[in-house]
Amino acid sequence: MYQVKRISRSEFVPIRNLSYHVRLWGEPTPGVAPLVLVHGWMDVAASYQFVVDAFSEAFAQGRCIIAPDWRGFGLTRWQSPDGQSGAGAPDNYWFADYLADLDFLLDHYAPGQAVDLLGHSLGGNVVMHYAGVRPERIRRLINLEGFGVPATRPSQAPGRYAKWMDELKRLHRGEMALKAYPEAGGVARRLMKTNPRLGQDKADWLAQHWAVPNAQGQWEILGDAAHKIPNAQLNRVDEVLALYARITAPTLAIEASDDSLSGWWGGKFTLAEFHERLKAVPHLTTGVIQDAGHMLHHDQPEQLARLIEDFVA
């Protein structure tokens, strides 16, 4: 099992009818911006443990590191006004809600203070959009493989709405439930199958945070199946570029040496297209993590930690 070097603590913050689970390392220090780490789709805040452990003592000392579990992931739970946990959970998720959740979280942890903000994958898209909406809240911005999605055409709207409604019906028929595993080792094997670079020690540790046993002893993934439903509305590249253009913070876009983007979209969206979009970001630096795939914070935490430290400093 992976041996943790820097122990985190958990807090639950009431935000927008949610009991938001937040993992923290270190303590706030006057004059030192908090480092906020937001995870990607079907991931959890604990996923950043390996990078936090790889930070130098000089960087980590006196710095508060904050990592929330997004709505519908990890230990974040819905909370009804009467205090009933689990009540009012949605049957689909809207991208704009991540922006609002992040805004509330920063108001709670860093009121009136600019933060260093990092996001991976889905979280990378969130932080790029948020930095265009609230540029004054960001001191340094880091995007880990938050590529976005292919450009769309208005003519695709009817089909997208129909697919959204069809997928909602599938969810309510119980056809989209996430697989449960008889023991934590099955979760670890799933993680290693998805990411062949992930070692057994890290996979065993992650499995304990990525899933929990239910009343029947089956290990259930800490992710809401409703996240599988595509957004009802089309992605508009012109809106994305308008948001990118409003980013004022120095921005670091980091990619893995493996090109996962082309594989996901089968040529419908390429790294070259993403790089073209990044030209709209005013103060941009790019970096590459060698010998890594999309889960670069698992594959090469030491390389990533050095890039983060140098950029934030």
Results as ranks from 00 to 15, higher is better:
3 Q>G: 10
8 S>C: 14
10 S>D: 15
19 S>C: 13
19 S>M: 13
19 S>I: 07
20 Y>G: 05
23 R>A: 11
23 R>Q: 14
24 L>R: 13
43 D>A: 12
45 A>Q: 10
48 Y>D: 10
50 F>L: 09
53 D>T: 07
59 F>M: 04
81 P>Y: 10
83 G>Y: 08
90 P>W: 13
92 N>I: 07
92 N>K: 09
93 Y>D: 11
98 Y>A: 07
101 D>H: 09
106 L>H: 04
112 G>P: 02
114 A>N: 05
115 V>Y: 02
121 S>A: 06
128 M>V: 10
128 M>Q: 12
128 M>C: 11
134 R>S: 08
135 P>R: 02
136 E>W: 00
143 N>I: 00
145 E>S: 02
147 F>Y: 15
148 G>M: 05
150 P>H: 01
156 Q>G: 01
159 G>T: 04
167 E>N: 02
170 R>Q: 12
170 R>Y: 02
171 L>V: 02
172 H>R: 15
174 G>Y: 10
176 M>E: 05
179 K>W: 02
181 Y>A: 00
182 P>R: 09
192 M>Y: 01
193 K>M: 04
195 N>W: 01
199 G>A: 04
200 Q>Y: 05
209 H>W: 09
213 P>K: 11
215 A>E: 15
215 A>N: 02
216 Q>K: 15
216 Q>T: 11
219 W>E: 05
223 G>N: 12
242 A>M: 06
242 A>Q: 14
243 L>K: 13
246 R>G: 01
249 A>G: 08
256 A>S: 15
262 S>F: 03
271 L>Q: 14
275 H>C: 09
277 R>P: 06
283 H>F: 08
284 L>M: 03
286 T>I: 07
293 G>I: 09
302 E>Q: 15
303 Q>S: 08
306 R>T: 10
310 D>L: 07
312 V>T: 06
